[in-house]
Amino acid sequence: RHRTTFTSLQLEELEKVFQKTHYPDVYVREQLALRTELTEARVQVWFQNRRAKWRK
């Protein structure tokens, strides 16, 4: 699998949602996936990684 490189616009969208909730439900993730043109799975993994980073 290749590494997904996020654009600054995608990161902006993702971070905006992360500020509101660290655990977006499937509906929120789907909406975010559509807005960022990423798959829902990529969005889910981004949140997992972002939460790990936040905990440190």
Rank of each mutant, 00 (worst) to 15 (best):
S8M: 11
L14E: 00
F47E: 01
K20R: 10
R55N: 14
K20G: 05
Y27S: 14
R50T: 05
T39G: 06
E30T: 09
A41M: 06
V28P: 01
V28M: 13
R50P: 00
T5N: 12
E12P: 00
T21D: 12
L38A: 09
F6D: 04
F47T: 03
D25Y: 00
Q19K: 08
Q44S: 14
P24H: 00
F47S: 01
Q19S: 11
L9S: 14
L11Q: 12
R35D: 04
R35P: 03
Q48D: 07
K20S: 09
T39Y: 02
E12I: 07
W46N: 02
Q48V: 10
V43E: 01
V17L: 12
F18Q: 01
Y27F: 12
K20D: 10
E15F: 00
F47G: 03
K56Y: 06
H2K: 15
F47Y: 02
R35M: 06
V45P: 05
V26S: 13
R50N: 09
V26H: 12
K16L: 07
V43M: 06
L38T: 12
E40F: 04
T36I: 10
Q48W: 07
P24I: 03
T21R: 01
T5A: 08
L9Q: 15
Q31D: 09
T5P: 10
L9N: 15
W54P: 05
Y23S: 07
S8L: 12
R1I: 12
L14V: 00
V17D: 00
L34V: 13
Q10T: 02
R35F: 05
F6C: 05
E15K: 04
Y27P: 06
P24M: 01
L34K: 15
T36F: 11
V45R: 11
W46P: 05
Y23L: 04
F18G: 02
R42M: 14
S8V: 11
F18Y: 07
H22E: 05
L32Y: 04
T4K: 08
K16N: 07
V45H: 14
R1L: 10
V26C: 14
R3Q: 15
K53E: 15
E30L: 07
D25I: 00
W54D: 12
Q31N: 09
T4M: 15
R55E: 11
T4S: 14
Q10N: 01
N49Y: 08
V28Y: 05
F47W: 02
P24E: 02
T5C: 13
E12Y: 13
K53I: 08
E13V: 06
A52S: 10
E15H: 01
S8H: 08
Y27R: 15
N49E: 15
W46F: 08
R1V: 07
Q48I: 14
T5R: 12
L38I: 08
F6G: 03
E15W: 03
V17T: 12
R3N: 15
K16W: 04
D25M: 06
E37A: 13
T39K: 05
K20N: 07
E40A: 10
V43N: 05
R51G: 02
E13R: 01
R50H: 04
V26L: 12
R55C: 11
T5M: 15
F18H: 00
T36P: 00
F18A: 03
A33W: 01
V43L: 08
H2C: 02
L38N: 03
K53S: 12
L9V: 14
K53L: 12
W54A: 13
F47R: 01
N49T: 10
T5L: 07
F47I: 00
R51T: 03
T4C: 10
D25P: 11
W46I: 01
Y27I: 13
Q44M: 14
Q31P: 03
Y27M: 13
R51M: 04
T36K: 00
L32S: 02
R3W: 10
R42F: 06
Y27H: 14
Y23N: 12
Q10M: 03
T5K: 14
Q44E: 14
V26T: 13
R35I: 11
E12L: 10
E13Q: 08
E37C: 11
R50W: 05
T7Q: 03
E15Q: 03
T21G: 06
R29K: 05
F47M: 02
E40S: 11
R35S: 07
V28S: 09
R3E: 11
T4Q: 13
R50K: 14
E40P: 13
R1H: 14
L38M: 11
E40D: 11
V45M: 12
E15D: 03
Q19N: 09
L14A: 03
R55P: 12
R29Q: 06
Q19C: 09
V28H: 09
Q19V: 11
E37M: 09
Q31F: 07
R51D: 01
F6K: 00
R3V: 04
E37T: 08
Q10H: 01
Q48G: 05
T4V: 12
L11W: 09
V43W: 01
L34P: 00
F47L: 03
Q19E: 11
L11F: 06
L34C: 06
R55L: 13
S8Y: 07
L14I: 00
L9C: 10
Y23H: 12
E12N: 11
L11C: 04
T4H: 15
T21H: 10
T4G: 13
Q19Y: 04
V26P: 12
F18M: 02
W54T: 11
T39E: 08
E12R: 10
K56G: 08
A33I: 00
W46G: 02
V17H: 03
W54V: 08
L11E: 15
K56E: 13
H2Y: 11
V26M: 12
R1N: 14
R29T: 14
T4N: 15
R55I: 08
R55F: 10
E12G: 06
R35V: 11
K53F: 05
Q10L: 04
H2S: 11
V45E: 15
A41K: 07
W54M: 15
Q31C: 09
N49F: 07
L34T: 09
L11T: 10
H22D: 07
S8G: 11
L14M: 13
W54N: 09
K56I: 09
L32F: 03
Q44V: 08
F6Y: 13
R29W: 05
H22T: 05
R29M: 15
A52V: 11
E12S: 11
T7S: 08
V26R: 12
L14P: 04
E30R: 14
Q31A: 11
W54I: 11
E13D: 06
V17Q: 11
N49S: 08
L34S: 13
Y27W: 05
V43H: 00
K20C: 07
R29C: 11
V28F: 05
V28G: 03
Q48E: 10
R42W: 08
E40G: 07
K20F: 08
E40T: 10
E15Y: 01
P24Q: 03
R50F: 00
R51N: 08
F18T: 02
L38K: 06
E15T: 02
L14G: 01
Q44F: 09
T4D: 15
F47K: 02
K53Q: 15
F6E: 10
Q31W: 08
T7E: 04
Q10W: 00
W46C: 01
R50D: 04
T21C: 08
T5V: 11
V45S: 15
T36M: 14
L14N: 00
Q10C: 04
P24A: 03
T4A: 12
K16C: 07
H22P: 13
L11M: 11
R29S: 06
R29P: 01
R35T: 09
A33H: 03
E37Q: 15
V26W: 15
T7D: 05
T36V: 09
R3C: 14
F18E: 01
E30H: 11
H22V: 04
E30A: 13
W46M: 00
H22A: 09
R3Y: 13
E15P: 01
R3M: 15
V45C: 10
Q44W: 05
A41V: 06
S8D: 12
L9K: 14
L14T: 01
R3D: 12
D25A: 05
R51E: 03
Q31V: 04
T36Q: 02
W46T: 01
L9Y: 15
